[in-house]
Design a binder for these strands. Structure first.
Length: 118
DNA sequence: AAACTGACTTCTC
DNA sequence: GGAGAAGCCAGTT
């Protein structure tokens, strides 16, 4: 849970209209090669992706962190994961709605990747 | 503690 | 570019 906790914190810090790659999150979390573990944490945790993520209320402290998992994409901006309802399509829709640029079915990381604070 | 699993990444064919 | 295989980590059983 500790690692996931860090992941949550990081993912929640992703600004609107930006996306981060699993590798990036994993690196910020402390382990570059933990990209897999990051996704695993998302899946295993009982969070519910909201359709309209205003995320105004930073529920820091809540036991159910609403992590904007849709802002986490693959290494190359490709939509991986999101086994939930709608799959990557819903993910893409949400991202596009937030202003994330898309190239076909992949995120335009050049313009929409989150430049995290190192 | 060991084995299995998973929303990953990268290399090779 | 698609398909297959190996390597990586954390969590669950």
């Amino acid at each position: 849970m500790t690692f996931c906790d860090r992941v949550y914190k990081i993912v929640k810090k992703i600004p609107k209209g930006k996306v981060a790659t699993y590798s990036q999150v994993s690196r910020l979390a402390g382990n570059v090669k933990a990209a897999r573990a990051v996704g695993m944490c998302m899946r295993t945790n009982p969070f519910v992706p909201v359709s309209d993520p205003a995320f105004s209320g930073d529920d820091t402290g809540c036991h159910t962190p609403r992590v904007p998992c849709h802002r986490v994409v693959g290494s190359d901006g490709r939509l991986v994961g999101y086994s939930g309802k709608g799959g990557v399509s819903a993910k893409k829709s949400m991202l596009a709605k937030e202003g994330v640029l898309f190239i076909k079915d992949t995120v335009d990381l050049v313009h929409s990747q989150w430049h995290s604070i190192f």
